[in-house]
């Protein structure tokens, strides 16, 4: 719709990213390019570095070597660039991390008012729009503690969307939810994928991975071992460790 929308533009470029926790090397040369509108699901065994990787994209973890470029901005120690990237990249956490001392409405408007410097009226209007989108406009004036887990996670998504990011990072957004609430969150995520958001999601929801992802990435021991279209990924895995992984998760 606008001129700078270029479907083929690289939104995230990671080249040979390494990350150390003290002596321990959690990422060992990860390279990945994400184009605008791509939906990428990251799979892998526990401890393989999935969270570490997506958290390094918005600088919640600091990579030690390699290059991460988001929307043309290289991620360095420059706090202005970090702030700029964080404005373009939203993140949804496993534990929701809503602010318990603020109402749902205040949770959502906090960043637009303080970071984007919107007026309260505009921020609240937008917040209502997003709450309606995730299906819980009637909860606006409750506190997070008064909501169910699924509702809390949808508020967290609305809070992230209210900053109008282009890229969304999800770190196991349904893992802390009771089974009956998983679907309501996955539905919202699927809608967002269809709308053209660029998405990187760590999730164990195979149905979502197969149905929504453009590409699935398999990580183990801090490396990307395989990256493929969902059908090919599940039906024709090549790397032996991926085969083992799939046999383990698909057999129960």
């Amino acid at each position: 719709m606008t001129m700078n929308v270029n479907a083929n533009e690289d939104v995230i470029v990671c080249k040979d990213v390494h990350l150390w926790y003290g002596e321990f090397e959690a990422l060992r040369g990860v390279s990945l390019t994400v184009k605008r509108g791509d939906v990428i699901v990251i799979l892998g065994p526990s401890g393989s570095g999935k969270s570490t990787f997506i958290r390094s994209i918005n600088r919640l973890e600091e990579h030690g070597a390699g290059e991460i470029v988001v929307k043309g901005i290289p991620l360095t120690h420059d706090v202005r660039d970090i702030a700029e990237i964080r404005r373009e990249v939203g993140m949804v956490f496993q534990q929701f991390n809503l602010f318990p001392h603020l109402t749902v409405m205040e949770n959502i408007t906090l960043a637009p008012i303080n970071v984007r410097k919107w007026s309260r009226e505009k921020a609240e209007e937008t917040a209502m729009k997003w709450l309606t989108r995730v299906g819980i406009p009637e909860q606006a004036h409750k506190y997070p503690g008064q909501l169910s887990g699924g509702q809390q996670q949808r508020v967290a998504i609305a809070r992230t969307l209210a900053m109008e990011p282009e890229v969304l990072l999800f770190d196991e957004p349904t893992s802390a939810l009771d089974p009956e609430m998983v679907k309501e969150v996955l539905d919202v995520m699927s809608d967002l994928a269809k709308e053209g958001y660029t998405i990187l999601a760590v999730t164990h929801e195979m149905g979502f991975a197969r149905g929504v992802a453009d590409r699935i990435v398999f990580m183990d021991y801090g490396e990307i071992l395989e990256s493929d279209h969902p059908d090919e990924f599940f039906d024709n895995p090549k790397h032996p460790r991926l085969k083992l992984f799939l046999s383990q998760i698909l057999h129960h």
Binding site: N58, A83, R86, G90, A111, V115, T160, M163
Partner: peptide, 9 residues
Amino acid sequence: EAARALGLS
């Protein structure tokens, strides 16, 4: 982490 991810200083 949530505050940082939202871009708060």
